Simulated scan of single mutants.
Amino acid sequence: MTIALGRYGIWQPAASTTPDQAREIERLGFPTLWAAGAPADLAGVDELLEATSTLVVGTSIVNIWRGDPGVAAAAYHRVSERFPGRFWLGVGAGHREHTPEFRKPLAAMNAYLDALDAGGVPVEGRAIAALGPKMLALTAARAGGAVPYLVPPAHTKLAREALGPAAVLAPEMKVVLDANPVRARDTARPRIANPTLGLVNYTANLRRLSFTDDDLSGGGSDRLIDALVAHGAAATVAARLAEHHAAGADHVAIQVITPRHATHPDLPGVQLQVHDYEVVDVYRTLAAELL
């Protein structure tokens, strides 16, 4: 099974992504839409695929603690059989801070993959949100690729070395389209600070990449923000995104940040992107530069 992700795709929260938005993303030329936080039953994914003709939809990610893997396996077959070659199941181990039942993530992911195997989900049809060396090694053995979140190109280089040449590597990177670096960092910093700098799996990974306690405090140092967010004019953003490809990525999932946000319905204090004309304008500008 071959799924053509293309070089760049768009990352959006699944709960706030509409079929109209999916059509517009496809119309602009982006080949892939990442439905973030999709439920195990993949509710809503069918509608996004029905609304489009060639768009690939991936989940980045289905949280393994929220829903039975048997449900996810059945949903995978439902979607992939209706839309062959246009769906990729991305799963992840979530965060101990948000998950009361959280236990050793590597063992939990292995058990979840065992259930996907039992449900007939092919290895090449699934990806893992792998950050650390052990989860990357598991991904190389038991998945078709990795969909790491909140990673700079330095992580992509390490991930490619760990995965080998065959696995698909599709990191996420945030974008602020603003040529004023101070203002761009001010726009990005709240999205980096909350919730990600409060989640130990992300901070541990950033420490492995030589970021310090000073970098991780106060909402994130300028050095940290610059590493995690491509900001500037469109050409500058394109050059920063291309660093992931130079480091070994096959595809980059772009998460656009603008000054407008809304509160997450399930996580008080966590902010989500508001999908309005401003975001679509950024997509349009990026499409002209990247595609």
Score class of each variant (00 low, 15 high):
Ala4Met: 09
Leu5Glu: 14
Gly9Met: 07
Gln12Val: 12
Pro13Val: 14
Pro13Leu: 04
Asp20Met: 06
Glu24Arg: 10
Gly29Glu: 01
Leu33Cys: 02
Leu33Trp: 07
Ala35Cys: 04
Ala36Asp: 10
Pro39Tyr: 10
Ala43Gln: 11
Asp46Ala: 15
Leu49Ile: 12
Glu50Lys: 08
Thr52Arg: 00
Ser53Asp: 12
Leu55Glu: 09
Val56Asn: 03
Val57Gln: 01
Gly58Lys: 05
Thr59Gly: 09
Val62Thr: 15
Trp65Met: 05
Gly70Leu: 12
Val71Gln: 09
Ala73Ser: 13
Ala74Ile: 09
Ala75Phe: 11
His77Gln: 13
Glu81Lys: 11
Phe83Ile: 10
Glu97Cys: 11
Phe102Cys: 08
Arg103Tyr: 10
Pro105Asp: 15
Pro105Phe: 15
Met109Tyr: 00
Ala111Val: 02
Ala115Cys: 04
Asp117Lys: 03
Asp117Thr: 12
Pro122Met: 12
Val123Phe: 01
Val123Ile: 11
Arg126Ile: 13
Pro133Ile: 08
Met135Thr: 15
Met135Asn: 05
Ala141Trp: 05
Ala143Trp: 06
Gly144Glu: 13
Ala146Met: 15
Val147Ser: 10
Val151Arg: 06
Pro152Asn: 08
Ala154Pro: 01
Leu158Ala: 13
Gly164Val: 14
Ala167Cys: 15
Leu177Lys: 01
Thr187Ser: 00
Ala188Trp: 09
Arg189Gly: 08
Arg191Cys: 02
Ile192Cys: 04
Thr196Ala: 12
Thr196Gly: 01
Leu199Asn: 08
Leu199Cys: 06
Asn201Arg: 07
Tyr202Cys: 04
Tyr202His: 08
Thr203Gly: 06
Leu206Val: 07
Leu206Lys: 02
Phe211Gln: 05
Asp215Met: 12
Gly219Val: 14
Gly219Ala: 05
Asp222Lys: 00
Leu224Met: 06
Ile225Glu: 09
Asp226His: 01
Asp226Lys: 07
Ala227Asp: 04
Ala233Met: 09
Ala233Lys: 08
Ala238Lys: 11
Ala239Ile: 02
Ala239Lys: 03
Ala246Arg: 12
Ala249Met: 10
Ala253Gln: 11
Gln255Pro: 00
Thr258Glu: 03
Pro259Asn: 09
Arg260Met: 01
Ala262Pro: 00
His264Pro: 01
Val270Asn: 05
Val270Cys: 03
Gln271Leu: 11
Gln271His: 04
Leu272Arg: 05
His275Ser: 07
Asp276Ala: 10
Glu278Arg: 01
Tyr283Gly: 10
Ala288Thr: 07
Leu291Ile: 14
